[in-house]
Design a protein around this nucleic acid. Structure first.
Length: 428
RNA sequence: CGGGGAGUGGCGCAGUCUGGUAGCGCACCCGGCUGGGGGCCGGGCGGUCGCAGGUUCAAAUCCUGUCUCCCCGACCA
């Protein structure tokens, strides 16, 4: 239940002069985010609603594979980072407390989670484990860019699996692949899972989840049953470069830019060995724990959704991400019959659990429509004088800006809610 | 880190070359009209011109230094 007359939604007619990416422009224009400094962004109320929708969706799928949610600190002692050899990373923020103790701001949480598992896991009976949290990451990026796409501080869902052997690791890894596939499908995004670059994380294998869009920083190669990061494809003997084109098995691969929204790494025992995370097996033998880590960036999912579905009028959310399901526009001034009808509809929808935002501001109709299309909620209901004349609440589906059959003004309470729910089911 | 660009009211900009005491549109506030695609009229509020120093009778404007932001590239655990 949200009335725009009381809500902080600072929409702008013009995008920031220096914004380039569509998601950057629209997130600012739609009043979702504001900038504090390079790579540092505040999520305003409507933006945070979207972010939290993504978070909740991820949470449900992580819990479904047995993930246990927890929370680890961002501010950490430097020592574990020294032990894993990552204290030297330039992107790692380092600082001291008043006593002069060395601290870091975590850029990811392998060290922290491994320290705790080392403290608490003693036996093979304690394994396997999937632990995860949603927590801020801090990275001293050389070049933040494109709004929320590449920032110095961002929330990540990172999970970590702990197993007694490589076979167990593969099982946990497969569970995550399934969860990630379901998450991506539920977001409504176009995405690909591609072979990833294991880089410095270790040599056991990795995958990346890529969402194609213009603002993407990476490039992927796509065939009928092939998808790979361009960097990886360059090392694949099956892929050959012919001039500008890439060929594989007689097929010309298409090339798209994409945002990396998630990655998963088989870590092996690199961190457990460095930090002493071991367990005893049935024969009383000590072994390092086999680990993997799995990241997902809610902010990048939000930005990718905007990039993929926006049109010249603004954002068009997939329904899983929309800040509100229904954007109810009231025309006419307070006290008029049409406004009273709109008030009643707002109360009915809210009471029925419909996620509705109500534009009850004293603004010109055109401005309300423009703001509604900028914000991009999947359904727009309009109630004005015409509604009273026709007996129908006007319905616009944001995706495609198509007029849907109107809802009868006579429908009230649960009946109205049911009709809106039915409409909702039909949306992308 | 290399290359390019930009800092003037909340947002978008002009003014800088040629120094003379800051302006436009939008937004905001007040009053009135209007009321289905950013409407109209009138009246207002709001700016140490990124910062510091210098030149000058006088600096948004010229000089020096510095900070910040954006874009391209490199990087991206």
């Amino acid at each position: 239940m949200t009335r725009l007359s009381e809500y902080l939604l600072p929409t702008e007619r013009e995008a920031p002069a220096d914004a380039e990416a569509i998601s950057h422009k629209l997130m600012v224009r739609a009043g979702l985010i504001r900038q504090m400094a390079a790579g540092l962004w505040t999520w305003l109320p409507a933006g945070w609603r979207v972010h939290q929708k993504v978070v909740q969706l991820i949470r449900e799928e992580m819990d479904a594979i047995g993930g246990q949610e927890m929370l680890m600190p961002v501010l950490q002692p430097a020592e574990p980072w020294r032990k894993t050899g990552r204290l030297e990373i330039e992107e790692l923020f380092k600082l001291q407390d008043r006593k002069g103790s060395e601290l870091v701001l975590a850029m990811t949480h392998e060290e922290a989670v491994t320290v705790h598992v080392a403290q608490t896991v003693r036996s093979y009976r304690d394994l396997p484990l999937i632990l995860y949290h949603f927590q801020v990451k801090e990275r001293d990026e050389p070049r933040p860019r494109a709004g929320v796409l590449r920032t110095r501080e961002f929330v990540m869902k990172d999970s970590y699996s702990f197993d007694r052997d490589p076979e167990g690791l593969e099982e946990r890894y497969a569970l995550h692949v399934g969860a990630y596939d379901r998450i991506m499908e539920r977001t409504g995004l176009r995405f690909y899972r591609v072979e990833g670059d294991v880089g410095m994380m270790g040599g056991l294998g990795a995958h990346e989840y890529m969402a194609p869009c213009a603002a993407g920083e990476d490039e992927i190669l796509l065939g009928t049953d092939y998808a790979a990061n361009l960097e990886i494809a360059g090392r694949d003997p099956e892929v050959e470069q012919v001039g500008e084109d890439y060929m594989r098995d007689g097929e010309r691969l298409t090339r798209e830019s994409a945002i990396e929204i998630g990655n998963i790494f088989k870590l092996g025992t690199r961190y457990s060995e460095a930090l002493g995370a071991t367990f005893l097996d049935e024969q009383d033998q000590e072994h390092p724990i086999w680990m993997a880590s799995y990241g997902l960036g809610p902010a990048r999912i939000v930005a990718a959704a905007i990039e993929q579905f926006a049109d010249e009028h603004g954002i068009s959310w997939p329904k899983a991400l929309a800040p509100f399901a229904v954007h109810l526009v009231a025309l006419g001034q307070p006290g008029t019959p049409e406004r009273e009808a709109a008030d009643r509809i707002y109360e009915d929808l809210g009471a029925g659990g419909v996620d509705v935002v109500y534009d009850d501001r004293d603004r010109a109709a055109g401005e309300k429509f423009a703001d509604a299309e900028l914000l991009g909620c999947p359904l727009r209901l309009t109630v004005g004088r015409r509604t009273l004349e026709s007996g129908e609440i006007e319905v616009q589906v944001r995706r495609g800006r198509e007029q849907a059959p109107g809802l009868p003004l006579s429908a009230q309470g649960a009946d109205l809610v049911r009709m809106v729910d039915e409409l909702w089911q039909s949306l992308p």
